[in-house]
Amino acid sequence: MTDVLGIYNYWIYVILMMIGLYGVIAKPNLIKQAIALGLFQTGIFLYYISMAVVDGGTAPIWTTIDDGAQKFQGPYDNPLPHVLILTAIVVGVSILAVALALIVNIKRSYGTIEADEIERMDHEDRLIEFRAGQAPDAADDAEAHHHA
């Protein structure tokens, strides 16, 4: 039991990450993908914060400084992962913002935010582009034969 609880947090982080990853892969809706990406990242946050915990620890903030002694007995949690995750959260929200901006733009240009429909339209775009750009070698050859 203790062993399981000892890595319980790490399992939950994996589960959260995988829920996010599943959403990113399986859901065709772009907004859903963006949200799922956020979930994916929060899994990592959970991992980092979990490793900072010390049994019986408390928040790494001194409360009393002036009298030279600290008010709280016992150990403090490790602040380093907290700091890292603060940064990561900020990065995450920045990415979310840019992703949403892109999605809004995509909606404007494609008229949909479903990945499979967009994929189909992209494919059509590419076919048109391919045909327009095709070097008509084959046509030339046929022409040459005709002339000969």
């Binding site: 990406l37 990242q41 992703a99 892109l102 733009n105 995509i106 992209d122």
Partner: peptide
């Protein structure tokens, strides 16, 4: 070309997943 948007978003999602793996 509107493809730039989907290209960027796709890169964003894959890139973020990659970066998350690196972070992990």
């Amino acid at each position: 070309h509107r493809g730039a948007l989907t290209a960027s978003l796709r890169y964003l999602i894959l890139g973020s997943v990659g970066a998350s793996f690196i972070l992990l």
